[in-house]
């Protein structure tokens, strides 16, 4: 039971409200403006009545749609590849000699700990040195390098919780290594695999700073948006932003609820 401290609590509560307003006000503004466009009559600001025009314009905008397609392709491939790699690294960490495991782990975590600008330009220079031209492949590699640490962490925590007894029991009962992996270990890890995959997809879909370095002429959605915003205001941006916000919010809430139910089962 916490001690009562009305003054401190109201001070902290006030800060929390200010924080929430600062975080959400801009997002809500974008959503509202996507339905009610701003109008100016002789310099006086007003709102147009409810309209879905920006959404209609969005559907007709081929540049945005093709960027969206690129983003979905990249995020799908990158998150699946990251999941496979993260699983491989996690098994390596729990089975290989400690020194090797730690060496691998330090290298895997690096791109996530470094500022994205460093990861981005390091990859750019490395690709250039081996004459690997920029395109879809380099974007996917850039995303995988950045995402693997997150998925690896999620998967490793779950793998270490499993312990060795189940694996040993399965091997004792005559199952092969592959059978043990497919029928015993992976099913036990399913929640971690799914939340890792969703997390990876969400991060890849949103990645901007590394992509700007390795993208070349390939345009993902955030890069397209970045280019559009630099030019000036386009009403479709608000509509697109609203849809992306809803989409990412849905993924995030799903991950959150999944990890919560996982935590409850564990405790």
């Amino acid at each position: 039971m916490k001690q009562k401290a009305p003054f401190i609590d109201s001070l902290l509560g006030f800060t929390a409200v200010v924080g929430l307003v600062a975080l959400y006000a801009p997002l809500i503004a974008v959503v509202v403006l996507s339905f009610f466009q701003i109008t100016r009559l002789r310099g006086v600001i007003g709102f147009a009545p409810f309209s879905l025009e920006p959404y209609a314009a969005l559907v007709a905008n081929h540049e945005i749609l093709s960027a969206l397609a690129t983003s979905l392709t990249v995020a799908t491939i990158a998150s699946l590849a990251s999941l496979v790699l993260a699983l491989m690294f996690a098994f390596y960490f729990v089975t290989a000699r400690r020194g090797f495991g730690l060496l691998m782990q330090v290298m895997v975590f690096l791109p996530f700990l470094l500022p994205p600008i460093i990861t981005g330009l390091a990859l750019l220079i490395a690709f250039r040195e081996i004459d690997f031209s920029r395109g879809l492949a380099t974007v996917i590699i850039g995303h995988v390098v950045f995402i693997v640490p997150v998925v690896y962490r999620t998967v490793l925590v779950r793998l270490q919780l499993l312990g060795r007894s189940l694996t040993e029991a399965s091997l004792d009962l005559g199952a092969s290594q592959t059978q043990t992996l497919v029928h015993v270990i992976l099913p036990q890890m399913r929640p971690a695999l799914i939340s890792g995959l969703l997390l990876a997809f969400a991060i890849s879909f949103d990645e901007t700073l590394i992509t700007l370095f390795v993208a070349g002429s390939e345009t993902t959605l955030p890069i397209r948006l970045w280019a559009m915003m630099r030019v000036g205001f386009v009403p479709e941006i608000n509509a697109l932003a609203t849809l992306i916000l809803l989409f990412t919010a849905a993924i995030t809430v799903a991950i959150g609820l999944m990890q919560r139910s996982q935590g409850e089962r564990a405790s």
Partner: peptide, 11 residues
Amino acid sequence: FMSYIIKVYAI
């Protein structure tokens, strides 16, 4: 987890 570029734009 919200899109970084959209947050910048929203602000």
